[in-house]
């Protein structure tokens, strides 16, 4: 009876193994080390700065980040935080970064739509005024907003890094529809596009062309601008953008866990002391 129980339990755990995606396949994200992983992880400020540059110079042409304000770049844990400016809105480097970008506004006298340089209190501007415009410029596909993308995809930053650095030539026998690109890390079902031998390759067709290229972004700190570096840095930046409070959360958590351990220990000692003379 017990043995049967164990067998059933083992079967149960085996069910956990596969992803619940039916015929959809994809390569598992590459196993990468992040500075912010684990209970004591922190963001690497230099990496966040490089990642912002990649976003600003490459991705922002098509992808909005509607939940991000320029002032977020200067907040504690952010890429351009400066202790001298506890209110990130005052941070002069943030202001200068913002000034380079034009945002839409209304002329307060005439009511006309105008463009003006952004300030730290402004949101990151969206490259397109609305969804139909975004789709029209991208062959019908909508480039997703990147504000929380690192939390909105299974695999998080590892998935983003793998996707960006993992574009491959489509294997012979795979018919790639026009306007699409093969990526082994993008979930898809390629069985109906495959005429080669054996099972269809893993992965899917993504509408985004490979966005990164060697030396496409010049890093101010002199880091080599390989596709892997750019992909890694922008993935870390996107993780920060999705969870700007991560470092604060882990810090608070350490204190909370230690405090709770002490409190629980004391409660256990009290419990034992109270129950000492009662047979139970």
């Amino acid at each position: 009876m017990l043995r049967k129980g164990f067998a059933i339990a083992a079967l149960g755990f085996a069910m956990l193994a596969g992803p619940a995606l039916g015929a959809t396949t994809f390569e598992e994200p590459k196993d990468v080390h992040w500075s912010f992983e684990g209970p004591f992880g922190k963001f690497d400020k230099a990496q966040l700065q490089r990642g912002y540059k990649v976003y600003r110079e490459v991705c922002s042409a098509c992808h909005a980040m509607n939940l991000m304000y320029f002032r977020n770049l200067g907040q504690p844990g952010g890429p351009f935080y400066d202790e001298k400016y506890p209110n990130p809105n005052d941070n002069p480097y943030v202001k200068s970064l913002a000034k380079d970008i034009q945002v839409g506004d209304i002329d307060s006298e005439t009511g006309d739509a105008i463009k003006r340089p952004a300030g730290s209190a402004d949101k990151f501007p969206s490259p397109f005024p609305n969804e139909p415009a975004a789709r029209a410029s991208n062959g019908g596909a909508l480039p997703p907003d990147l504000s929380v993308i690192a939390k909105a995809r299974e695999g998080g930053p590892a998935y983003i890094y793998s996707l960006l650095s993992g574009f491959e030539e489509a294997p012979a026998g795979l018919t790639v529809p026009p306007g699409k690109h093969y990526n082994p890390y993008y979930p898809g079902d390629l069985s109906s596009f495959w005429t080669g031998k054996g099972p269809a390759p893993k992965g899917g067709f993504i509408s985004m062309p490979p966005p990164l290229g060697p030396n496409k972004v010049t890093f101010d700190d002199g880091s080599p601008s390989t596709v892997q570096q750019q992909a890694k840095d922008v993935s870390a930046f996107l993780m920060w953008a999705a969870e700007p409070k991560m470092e604060e959360r882990k810090r608070f958590g350490l204190g909370a866990m230690i405090y709770l351990l002490i409190l629980t220990g004391l409660l256990y000692a009290s419990y034992r002391a109270i129950w000492r003379n009662v047979s139970h």
């Binding site: 958590g253 866990m257 709770l260 629980t264 409660l267 256990y268 419990y271 129950w275």
Partner: peptide, 19 residues
């Protein structure tokens, strides 16, 4: 007190998830 101790253990699990 016994319930408080059990709550302490439970909160440790809760805190692990939250943080």
């Amino acid at each position: 007190v016994k319930d408080a101790f059990a709550i302490g253990v439970f909160l440790l699990m809760f805190a692990y998830f939250v943080f």
